[in-house]
Design a protein around this nucleic acid. Structure first.
Lengths: 249, 249
DNA sequence: CGTCATGTTGAGCGTCATCAACAGGAGTGG
DNA sequence: CCACTCCTGTTGATGACGCTCAACATGACG
């Protein structure tokens, strides 16, 4: 559960005994293979899932067979937290890699949030951040041409991974484990697999990214960011806030 | 302020004296013309804006001059509520029509939320709903062809307006005031103005929508919904929750 | 009456989707 | 160990969807 708690602590100040409380209310743990649904459209979860390990995505599937990935998530998130408020899921949450998930009963979590307002606060802020990322994805999908769209996604992933120590940096070079297929990328960027393939080759040709089946390298983050029109502003909420006097009390 | 408070009450149960409390902490009111920024990218608001009247949008502007609208909002919302957590705005909030806005100091609102947890809860849920809408917009932008994209947007707007009594319904016909230009639609759907124009003409030709400069009519919501692949699931959070025994206590 | 914003139409072209085929690696079972 | 299949990546050919540029129509407004 450490990934989870550490992540919450990056967002808000939590009382020191919250660790034990949270670990105490975990009811079970489950392992998933890649490309499986953790929660499906229409489900009415009675527990909140906590992602302990792996990459997952939110996605919707259309009548025409197309699948749109609307968000990527890494270890530490509670992807179906909204089920606390909205009984039925309006989208699928699926694994991209194999993944490990812990479950917390709604009742226990509600109770804990009631007695620890900072916890509710942290979750709310988490929701705010995710909304900000979704907005940027809208921009990506609606306003950027193919190559920049993919480049932008790489910038976002690299930045988010690095923030949690899951990417290696050497100067302006960043590299990280890469578990996604081009088909995943196609679903996330609203492009066809073929076009994703050609766009990646173009980016490779320009020396902007290096990509193998298991590793991604961005030789120069600044250059890729410039090309993609990447501005990390929208990820700022993920940084530990500088606490203003007003904000603290 | 009634639109605002009524809207919050649709989302969560609030104590009866909250009306006076909220009205008491409004510090000022301002009127905007159409197509002006209420808050701009980079701003650090000290007040939360409450939209009392008019249509507004969230949007980002890219280096290539393109503008992507990422959300539409109607009267009753607090569009820059996130400034409570994230000091700097990561996008613009702009009027689409003329609009009237009230301002509440961050300090007062924080204080009130501290003493009335239901209020914080309502705002959090509002954030959850907005995130759900953003996801559906991602799907729209990434996975639907032009005509269905526009049709879907009309379905969403009609549904949201009707929920607050701002649309007229006769059987399966819905109509409502229409203040947007085709250029606004282009920014919201990621299409060129010309293509928006032609798509609308196609929808008109199929009898799916009727559109004049000031009024929109959907002759048959079900038919348009079927054409667009519209499923109102994702707007469910906006409905008054049915309170489960568990949820209440 | 001129100006401006908005809507409309035509022509040409580019981006990207679709369809199809094939190559390589990983895993499976005989 | 080899044959087989499946998944992923790659490439080519073709055409559709949607963009750009340009011109013009219309109504609102001063």
């Amino acid at each position: 559960m450490n990934v989870f708690i550490d992540r919450l602590r990056m967002i808000a100040d939590l009382p020191s005994d919250i660790d034990r409380e949270l670990e105490g209310i975990v009811s079970s743990t489950k392992t998933f293979a890649a490309n499986q649904d953790i929660v499906s459209h229409g489900d009415r979860p009675s527990h909140v899932a906590v992602l302990l390990e792996g990459w997952i995505c939110r996605n919707k599937i259309l009548a025409n067979g197309k699948r749109q990935v609307t968000a990527l998530h890494f270890a530490g998130v509670t992807p179906d937290l909204q089920s606390l408020f909205v009984p039925a899921m309006d989208h699928n949450i699926s694994t991209l890699t194999s993944a490990r998930v812990a479950y917390i009963p709604h009742t226990s979590l509600r109770e804990l949030m009631g007695s620890v307002p900072e916890l509710a606060h942290a979750f709310w802020q988490e929701t705010v951040l995710e909304a900000a990322i979704a907005r940027e994805w809208e921009v990506n999908l609606g306003a950027r041409p193919a190559e920049q769209r993919i480049a932008h996604l790489f910038c976002e992933i690299a930045t988010r991974l690095e923030r949690f120590g899951w990417a290696e940096r050497n100067g302006s070079t960043v590299s990280f484990a890469w578990p996604l297929t081009q088909s995943h990328l196609a679903d996330a960027t609203g492009m066809s697999v073929v076009h994703v393939n050609r766009s990646i080759q173009a980016l490779r040709g320009d020396g902007l990214i290096e990509l193998t089946r298991e590793k991604a390298t961005i030789p120069d983050m600044d250059e890729l960011g410039r090309f993609a029109g990447f501005n990390a502003d929208y990820l700022l909420a993920e940084r530990p806030r500088q606490q203003s006097a007003e904000g603290r009390q």
